[in-house]
């Protein structure tokens, strides 16, 4: 038996909107730790890792570890039917081939339930070790989204370089080239508006903008984004989900040979 009650149901709606274009089908894993997912895009270039910790739910019952295969587009369709202020409860019985999403309006005058068919998904899980990164950039998520969108109108790839001067996003295309430099800026009114750069080593890596633009669909989840870079590793783009967990996107770099 599984029953997870999330008072801030809009978080789950935003999570689905942030990952459904990158991944079609995924297994949601439910354990005493929380509600989680790890899935790669069909090209195995990008990976999404989601964690919603059990403490973040108002009620969290998960009698035994459960993995539920879902089509994310169908799940998003159902969650779109929940109001932004609704409480969402996810329910599943042991051995059942369906999951139920229950939506309660804040005043309890409208209660809906949507039953979705589960699917068997043969997904490949990757072991991702905790790593020390050469550079970690924290910046406003809207700024990062703007940069990825702007650069993708010029080129297909972005080179992200971190030096002590700041973080530089560069692209080149048929019509020309663009460079955007963000300097560390901690003297802002609101901490979430700051750009903070922690650098151990200078880093320069190239990525497909098509994927970074997918990641920025998570912008509504968090006012800040953290970009962790090492010369020998995929980049990690992390959006924290208030008090509950995170959505992390991993993206393998492009390399020149």
């Amino acid at each position: 038996m599984l029953e997870l009650r999330l008072v801030q149901g809009s978080l789950l709606k935003k999570v689905l909107e942030s990952i459904k274009e990158l991944v079609n089908d995924a297994n949601f894993d439910c354990s005493s730790t929380g509600f989680s997912l790890q899935a790669m895009d069909s090209s195995h270039v990008a990976l999404v890792a989601l964690l919603l910790r059990s403490e973040g739910f108002e009620h969290y019952r998960c009698d035994r570890n459960l993995s539920m295969g879902m089509n994310l587009n169908n799940m998003a369709k159902m969650l779109k039917c929940a109001g932004n202020d609704d409480i969402i409860t996810i329910k599943a019985d042991d051995g059942s081939d369906t999951v139920t999403f229950m939506f309660e309006s804040p005043t309890q005058d409208k209660i809906s339930d949507f039953e979705m068919k589960l699917m068997d998904i043969d997904s490949e899980h990757l072991g991702i070790p905790e790593a020390e990164y050469d550079a970690i950039v924290r910046m406003p998520s809207a700024e990062f989204a703007r940069i990825c969108k702007d650069l993708s109108s010029i080129g297909d790839t972005v080179v992200i370089s971190v030096t002590k001067e700041g973080v530089k996003f560069s692209t080149k295309g048929d019509i020309g080239a663009a460079n955007i430099v963000c300097r560390q800026n901690t003297t802002v009114d609101k901490p979430d508006d700051a750009t903070v750069i922690e650098m151990k080593e200078p880093v320069s890596l190239q990525f497909a903008l098509r994927y970074t633009n997918f990641f920025t669909k998570a912008t509504p989840l968090s006012s800040t984004v953290t970009i962790s870079l090492s010369n020998e590793l995929p980049v990690v783009v992390e959006y924290k989900i208030a008090e509950m967990g995170y959505v992390r996107f991993y993206l393998a770099p492009k390399i020149e040979e």
Partner: peptide, 14 residues
């Protein structure tokens, strides 16, 4: 030439 690496070049399958 620019090549796109894939994730299993970096992380092991569990």
């Amino acid at each position: 030439q620019i090549f796109q690496k894939i994730l299993v070049d970096y992380f092991d399958s569990k």
